[in-house]
Design a protein around this nucleic acid. Structure first.
Lengths: 215, 215
DNA sequence: TCGGTAAGCTGACGGCATGACAGGACAAGT
DNA sequence: ACTTGTCCTGTCATGCCGTCAGCTTACCGA
């Protein structure tokens, strides 16, 4: 699929080169967690990786280029979120279970990758198609599965005709992503993590099935 | 409440000074709409405003400081979003109306201020308390009203006891904000603006009342 | 009308990040 | 040891940052 890893000037990266490259990515990733995106400088990343700025520019065109790389790796993992919905039922107690596990898995994934996801979110919101594509890659799997589930329930007549499955699914996924990204915010509103999850699951269940879950 | 407007070095700003200051804010605001936050440079803002970088630093400590100023002005307007909920009913047809108007007003506000809201969102997500506070100021009005409505319905026994009003309200508000910030994303999923609104309103209504709206 | 005072603005400067290059260090095969 | 191709860095021109001293402008009281 992907060709070999190449440097900016076209050479093929060998073992050592790839190691350096990865180390730079790791350090950048770490910096994104500890300081504002706007203030991340190439020279700091290079220093942290025990190398020089020039080396950084050998592997990446700029900071944004490296961020895209990290985001891509994450998106590949994120595609696994589909499993949270594959072959699950939305009926009865199983439905409630499905909603809960979806929320759980989603929040966990976001928590693990919050720094990079923030940047991806910003890039996408600013209209950058590359970030946009990555955001889609992560959300699409969940979104499509949800959308299909809703459409199926709709075809069985359990949901009103004028409901748009894609709109509902997209809104729910956006909600999950937003809440995950601002989990700290809820503490200020006096809501604890443990309380948040079941309430989110409730909203997801309501949105998908149009009914309260049977617990 | 606020004293006079002051320059960084403590002088009081007069008519001309305030005009310059405002012009810088306007230009910065415009730049945020047209280029990535990370790439907004003081020198560009100054040039656009027909002045020099040194002048910029006379009125603001740095770019972030100026952004906070803009965000503050916006937050003041945003507090008006409370009106969308004040004294509204969540019962019957009126409830559906309330949900629709909330969604409408929210999306409109976000659309008008999308550039600055993106930056505020990022700052808040990165843990900056100043941005966080501003984000709260905007969302709190809506959030509190929603939370109260849910708590009231709950006290009448129309909603399960184990529902946490603040968690539901916060999640719904986060959803509205997220969807508003990624409106373009839905087009890729084949969802048009006009279709999006009623579906969002449906989710809000479901979340607040636990029931499908009567239209 | 005329200083005096404070506001308003800018040129210039040291400092630092950026991004490009050429050349030296290094590993592996012969 | 020699060659080849990968890998890293010293160095440099460029441009932005953030500050300061000093100049210009506006206001005000005598």
């Amino acid at each position: 699929m992907t060709g070999q890893v190449r440097t900016v000037d076209g050479r093929v990266a060998g073992r050592r080169g790839q190691a350096t490259r990865q180390k730079l990515l790791d350090c950048l990733s770490e910096m994104l967690s500890s300081s504002p995106y706007r203030d991340v400088k190439v020279i700091d990343v290079a220093r942290k990786a025990g190398t020089s700025p020039a080396t950084f520019y050998q592997y990446f065109p700029d900071v944004e280029g490296a961020v895209l790389e990290i985001a891509d790796q994450m998106a590949a993992e994120g595609a696994g979120l589909t499993e949270l919905l594959e072959g699950r039922s939305w009926v009865g107690k199983a439905g409630w279970q499905t909603a809960q596990e979806l929320v759980d898995g989603f929040l966990e994934f976001w928590r693990k990758n919050d720094a990079i996801l923030r940047v991806v979110d910003l890039g996408a919101a600013e209209g950058d198609k590359r970030f946009y594509k990555i955001r889609m890659k992560i959300l699409n799997s969940v979104n499509n599965s949800l959308s299909d589930s809703i459409a199926e329930l709709q075809s069985k007549g359990r949901i009103d005709k004028d409901v748009n499955p894609a709109a509902i699914a997209g809104s729910l996924v956006a909600m999950l992503a937003a809440v995950a990204g601002h989990q700290k915010g809820f503490q200020t509103w006096g809501v604890k993590q443990a309380e948040l999850k079941p309430n989110l699951a409730l909203l997801v269940h309501l949105g998908v099935t149009g009914k309260k879950p049977t617990k």
